[in-house]
Design a protein around this nucleic acid. Sequence first.
DNA 1: CGCATCGTGTTAATCGATTAACACGAGGGG
DNA 2: CCCCTCGTGTTAATCGATTAACACGATGCG
Lengths: 356, 356
Amino acid sequence: MGARKPTLRSVAEAAGVSTATVSYAFSRPDRVSAEARARVLTVAGELGYAGPDAKGRSLRTGRTGAVGVIFTTGLTYAFTDPYVTAMLAGLAEALEPSRTSLVFIPFGEVNAGMAPDEVRRSVDAVHRAMIDGAVADGLDDDHPAVRVLAERGIPLVRSNETAAGPSVVIDDRQAGRDVGRHLAGLGHRDIVALVATPHEPGRVVEVTGQTPLFPYSRLRLTGLRESLPADTRLRVISGGSNSALAGQVAARAVLHGSERPTAIAADSDVLAAAVAGVARERGLWLGAGLSLTGFDDQPVAAELGLTTVRQPVHRKGFLMGRMLVDPGAERGRITLPTELVVRRSTGPAPSVRLGE
Amino acid sequence: MGARKPTLRSVAEAAGVSTATVSYAFSRPDRVSAEARARVLTVAGELGYAGPDAKGRSLRTGRTGAVGVIFTTGLTYAFTDPYVTAMLAGLAEALEPSRTSLVFIPFGEVNAGMAPDEVRRSVDAVHRAMIDGAVADGLDDDHPAVRVLAERGIPLVRSNETAAGPSVVIDDRQAGRDVGRHLAGLGHRDIVALVATPHEPGRVVEVTGQTPLFPYSRLRLTGLRESLPADTRLRVISGGSNSALAGQVAARAVLHGSERPTAIAADSDVLAAAVAGVARERGLWLGAGLSLTGFDDQPVAAELGLTTVRQPVHRKGFLMGRMLVDPGAERGRITLPTELVVRRSTGPAPSVRLGE
DNA sequence: CGCATCGTGTTAATCGATTAACACGAGGGG
DNA sequence: CCCCTCGTGTTAATCGATTAACACGATGCG
């Protein structure tokens, strides 16, 4: 009745050997004789002992066989984001050979004015996560989650250029410039940049210097700005985190009346696709009445004929994984190439625009 | 220097208190005086102590704050499968409030004729996973991974009807019947069922009684078979695990020559979408020259006008998550409704078919 | 004033394993 | 015959925390 779960010790006693022998039988077969191992395994089977307990083992060895994944956005959104899933696929590919588990670590909102205890609660899952390393996307050095990992001594690979330490990045600023030059070259002088910001989608905000922004957005905006002629009007808005809904509400807000821009530069294909949908509702032709660019070059971009910046997302994830599990992998920062893919969603700016 | 990582003990010594006090300071603020807590936290900060070590803590408490996710398919595929990501989103939603992490556990191929040690190695990650519970999709009771979890005493929620124990399911057999009746009613007497099987996509196999099949496929096929008139020709094939590639190679293999069926019942919208692509290549009109059904009713189905079986995937994931984290949640089996959604991809069978 | 209660701190047992170091008998080589 | 090595088993220290039980002074109450 009161049968507790069998442990290494109970198996050892039942088999009449020391705990060391049982441990070796499971973890280092060459260290014990074949007979001893067979007996231990038999006894273990009879007792319903599944093998050394993961928690005890990992406390002793210091290893967990898992790496963490931290997203800036809630997990619910993350799995629906094609950029994220592509990166995850690459990451999973790198981890597969070593059968390393992948731990998705959620955390709550963190912002400047929060009390220390509140912040601590938000990143509680980061404290509790049992991992040998982690990858994070779009988290700055001063983000509490990054701080905690550093204190815990857990190796972290990131994919933002603003990161000190190991990272796999693209040149976001240059990519921003590429987009800007392309649009400027087509004559656009009234442009809206549509970015994702770390809040629930649905509320449209005008992005100012104070608005918290993902590091990559900041860099792309810098590139965009510095590539545009001085007489260009550039507004930056956001409808929240990267999602169709955010793109939709932002597009609805900006695509009407005399304030309508001639081009929208969206920070992801997901956002751009949503804008394309709203443009269709409004009877605007992409590449004519409205020019539109995306980012990432996900499959949806080709389907929509979307001008976008291609980046090797799968490879990014793969390399991040390698840096964690392969001690021989290169350290430091790896910069991957991007490429502006021009399709029919961008075209010359209307030469004369009539207010209404 | 030889500075090791600070522990609860070193903080206690530095602060001149007992380890209990330090532990309480971090985990049960109400158990210590405000001053003591402040001193401990200060000292911890100076020493760079991030808080109680996750491994030690979880060994002692027996809890991990994480639940596992086990897929029949490799993680690389999993993240690209819309059914999977929808389920994950639901699952993540259920776990969010308790900030529970999600652990993706990979495992290698397992099949009948493997040596015990080989099997053990394949499910090694299941042994090592530090989780309080797990969800699994499409794993039968006798699957090694399921066995290991049972021995380890880890609660498992599954989504297959063949599962003993807690599960959130749909009536796959009934769904199969619905599809069969629909096609039979349209006059189809030569049907190919296209299913996913647990092997790398690319190789097309004719499914026989011996072929290893996912539990849900088996049930749907049973339903399909029993709803078809006796004079119906039914072939079952697979191009491997659920993916566009598998659907494509299977469709290519079956959609040519005089052996061409009048209808294809695919086991997922992903497979069906791939078939639709091949049909287009071959100049076959869906709903006329070829009838096609899918499964799941993912967004792609509406886009393609695909007749399919709708199931509440997000809700499935959500409920599975609740059953794990919420002690008050209902136990046992929850059956969710399905609905045959008829669109234009199915139509009357061609009354006369010419061989070539 | 005596006693119960409360707040706050400490002691020490415990969670379940890994592995360096050692012991000991058998076999091999000189 | 002695010594060395090899194979195999054991001993015991250790990983880093949690928490029941207890101790003790201060406070409240009758």
